[in-house]
Write a protein that binds this DNA or RNA. Structure first.
Lengths: 248, 248
DNA sequence: ACGCATTTGTTCGTATGTATT
DNA sequence: TAATACATACGAACAAATGCG
């Protein structure tokens, strides 16, 4: 196979061409050549740049679009996905009213401080125990009902300078903030869900009795290249809301 | 647009061709022209049948494959998806050990009888209150630990003849049984998850104290055409296992 | 063991349609 | 209206995996 511009033996030659193109585009996203919300070059431009046909670029972009890393808009171009748009705003929020319309929560910050990574936090964020970590605690309210208590841990080096003020002044979702203020785009998250009894602060903040069953949702969110950049433990009241999921 | 074999004004003409082809293939699946596990005609055959190019058929099949309705196998053909294969066997089972390897559960049937649809069951299965329904209760054990208690409701007309004997003799998953014995293929399921306290039978069967927090997973499973054909209420112990989910 | 036919997978090229600016 | 960009559709060729004789 003939050598290509960026293809300086960086990608194995035995991969399908469109996969190699996909990797190259992914690298552009990762390195910030194109930023969230911005348009990437047109298909013909990319085809020229990488010396392949438009159809090959198209197939690469198709896959990235199906993974929600890019968004195609007919007549306008292909854009780097962002948590900014209303549709993407609450893409990772699975809590819905048991009955009725979807609602969006109000967020109230309870704590924002620097801490040292515990062994658990260090493990999931791939840090060393004792590394600097930003700790956030917030509560989400649906129609003034306290419903979610989130404890959030972020790598200190990535989120250097994050303060309660920044959080409070920001309009929009947390992942939106990460993206615009810290250039850190969340593309995937794994969750582990268990049922736990309300205890201590939890019960008081969510206004339920001690021992009330609650959902405990441990989330690890990843940016490009499967790099973990958020550990979040969410405690959910599920009397008026429930966690929704579609299997397919 | 010129008229086509099956295209007797059944599908609106303003849809893209490949979408129309997709609808036609879907109809074939729905009507059982090709059964689970079987191969559908090759791309060139389908292209000839529908009088379109191979590329157009390919795009239709691509979408059906991405929805897990078809499975492509290079060199062999394209097959109707089935719950039979090991990989698909436990596709809808989201319960995993908190630590360690994936395990597959043993199933023990506790009840199998005909009942009348309650208002809740009638609503989700789109039946009338009082219609005949098959009720199954079973328990799932991981390494001999009782972990899941499932109450399952099925439309009586579709699952006429389902008995405890059939269930007990069958090797493989429940959806596998539905598919092979009743021609009913599950393609999608919606789940609503809440935390509930163990009560009554639940606590005894799962061997936990009364009031222990458990997951309550309400599932509605659908076959082709978004037709609901199963309502299942699962109660999960989450001390040794957790419900896993990936957001993307 | 080998070659051949079949089937999907990849890649290219071209033309036309549709949405946006 | 014109230019641009993605969307659809067709056709052709070769690669890779499979199965059969």
């Amino acid at each position: 196979m003939k050598t290509r511009e960026d293809g300086v033996a960086a990608t194995p030659a035995f991969l399908p061409l469109y996969q190699q193109i996909k990797t190259l585009v992914l690298r552009g996203l990762q390195e910030g050549e194109w930023r969230p919300g911005q348009a990437i070059p047109s298909e013909v431009d990319l085809a020229a740049r990488y010396r392949v046909s438009q159809g090959t670029v198209r197939k690469a972009i198709d896959e990235l679009a199906s993974e929600h890393l890019l968004v195609r808009r007919q007549g306008k171009g292909t854009f780097v996905a962002t948590h900014d748009e209303p549709r993407m705003q609450y893409r990772f929020l699975r809590l819905m009213p048991v009955e009725g319309e979807v609602e969006y929560p109000e967020s109230r910050l309870l704590a924002c401080r620097r801490v040292r990574a515990s062994s658990e936090v260090a493990r999931v964020l791939e840090l060393k125990v004792g590394d600097g970590v930003v700790f956030l605690r917030r509560i989400l309210l649906f129609k003034d009902d306290p419903t979610v208590l989130d404890d959030i841990y972020l790598p200190g080096t990535v989120f250097r300078g994050l303060t309660g003020e920044i959080f409070n002044e920001y309009k929009g979702s947390l992942y939106n903030l990460f993206e615009t203020e810290f250039g850190m785009r969340m593309i995937r998250a794994d969750e582990k869900i268990r049922a736990v009894p309300a205890a201590g602060d939890m019960a008081r903040l969510l206004q339920v009795d001690q021992g009330t069953p609650l959902l405990c949702v441990d989330r690890v969110a990843y940016t490009y290249g499967d790099r973990p950049v958020e550990f979040r433990r969410g405690i959910y009241r599920t009397d008026r809301h429930c966690y929704r999921n579609t299997l397919s």
